[in-house]
Amino acid sequence: MTEPKALSTPLDQAASLRDNILITQVDKLIGWTRKNSVWPMTFGLACCAIEMMATGASSYDIDRFGSGPFRATPRQSDLMIVAGTVTNKMAPRVKRLYDQMPEPKYVLAMGACTVSGGPYIKYGYHVLKGVDRIVPVDVYVPGCPPRPEALLEGLFRIQEKVAKERILDRNRVGARPSLLVE
């Protein structure tokens, strides 16, 4: 066994520091930590929810990207994946769930129905034509339903957005328009 080399000279000390010290911005550090623990809400509405479940299950395993813990309550979640058709009867509930989530919060519209009404856009008298009419949406994932890979890609876009955020303009409450159902 060789003894660890004593750091005798200042040059050696500097070389050692290079391996142990990381200089970064606080914004970047916090962004990096936050982006890898985006907790979604268990919020299945229709067919897309099945693909969302598949994303969480064995083959696709959303856990690899830090979004495994699907929370059953909005108060513990950061991300609302609106998976499935939102109807007029359900819309006030979706809005209330969004309001119950703590800031900062993100919304991912999954599937054609939540993006624009999808196949129900013309004759669906009871279907909300796009969830962005009641809550602000960060990322749209089209498809009917989108594949799990597509949902993961949507999650990466959310992560990008989270990573770029600066603490100073964190106060998103005022920055976001308030859209009301009532």
Partner: peptide, 29 residues
């Protein structure tokens, strides 16, 4: 099936879906 305060009976042939529902635009085309 429909919300409690829904108006009309949708499967009647002369049914027109409402333009707005609680202030949210309902018809696109």
């Amino acid at each position: 099936l429909c919300a409690e305060d829904w108006e009309g009976h949708p499967l009647r042939k002369d049914y027109k879906s409402p333009d707005t529902y609680h202030g949210v635009r309902n018809n696109v085309v």
